[in-house]
């Protein structure tokens, strides 16, 4: 059994995977953890090798695009402490190609896919429940607090949907933002966020939406439990229809 350590970055993790592949070591025989730098930590620290990491990833994309996709969403999930499973998953992916995602009887594969699927599901949910507000300068702003770090794919999605508009998406908890301005998308961090003024007709449109939201429900079929299970309350904070105007 060999114990590997890495620096906690995605590149670092891929470097370990690249090394194991080069040495054709068995993933069953290895564990991987983030280096804590304590005095008595044992294990082999593998230096991050950006070039090797990139090569490994491009090979993954070529030979198992589905697994590369799963890996991407796993990373967005920001899940810690699953490095050993991830390592095994990556090695298996290069061994079996796209078919690896069918191997649900394998615990590592199943765990990685489960986590990745959660991130994917939240991305899909936010395509629906993200709410933009119109600002005084005509641009649109959406705030959100997703569990997973989905800003990048979400912004990519809106850049083909709301192409003619200028907009921002702001992840309140991570303090990261995406900006779409005259046809280009940029991602960055925001240190200090000050709420900009809304456009004049914004509250009127919001009130119209609330009116629609109220009347579209059939009174004889009220079912708040179903509503909450489809749309958990943790997401209500930024939903226009759930605000008091």
């Amino acid at each position: 059994m060999s114990r590997y350590l890495y620096d906690g970055t995605v590149e670092g993790l891929l470097s370990v995977a690249a090394r194991m592949l080069a040495e054709s070591s068995e993933p069953e025989q290895a564990t991987l953890d983030e280096r804590q730098n304590t005095l008595f930590e044992d294990g082999v620290f593998i230096e991050t090798d950006a070039a090797a990491a990139e090569m490994f990833f491009s090979r993954l994309r070529q030979e198992a695009p589905d697994a590369a996709h799963t890996f991407y969403f796993f990373i967005l999930a920001e899940k810690e402490g699953m490095e050993t499973s991830l390592l095994r998953y990556l090695i298996l992916a290069l061994r079996h190609g796209n078919k690896v995602n069918g191997n649900l009887a394998d615990a590592a594969v199943r765990d990685i896919i489960t986590v990745a699927r959660k991130a994917q599901r939240e991305l899909h949910r936010f395509k629906g429940i993200l709410r933009f507000e119109k600002l005084r300068d005509g641009a649109y702003l959406a705030k959100m607090e997703p569990d997973h770090n989905i800003l990048q794919p979400l912004a990519g999605y809106f850049s083909s949907r709301l192409r003619a508009e200028d907009w921002f998406i702001y992840d309140v908890r991570r303090r990261t933002a995406a900006r779409w301005h005259s046809g280009t998308l940029r991602l960055g961090t925001i240190e200090q966020f000050t709420a900009p003024a809304l456009s004049e007709d914004e509250l009127r449109i919001q009130a119209l939406w609330q009116t629609f939201f109220r009347t579209i429900a059939i009174p004889d079929r009220k079912n708040f439990r179903l509503q909450k299970s489809n749309m958990p309350m943790k997401y209500w904070r930024y939903l226009t229809e759930k605000q008091e105007l």
Binding site: I129, R163, F213, K222, F224, R225, L226
Partner: peptide, 26 residues
């Protein structure tokens, strides 16, 4: 796919945007 100057596209799987008080998707 959205046009370069227009607004909007459609997605094959469809998207729910909200759920009304009767629990149905909007």
């Amino acid at each position: 796919d959205g046009s370069a100057y227009g607004t909007g596209n459609t997605s094959r799987s469809g998207i729910c945007h909200s759920w009304s008080d009767d629990g149905r998707c909007i």
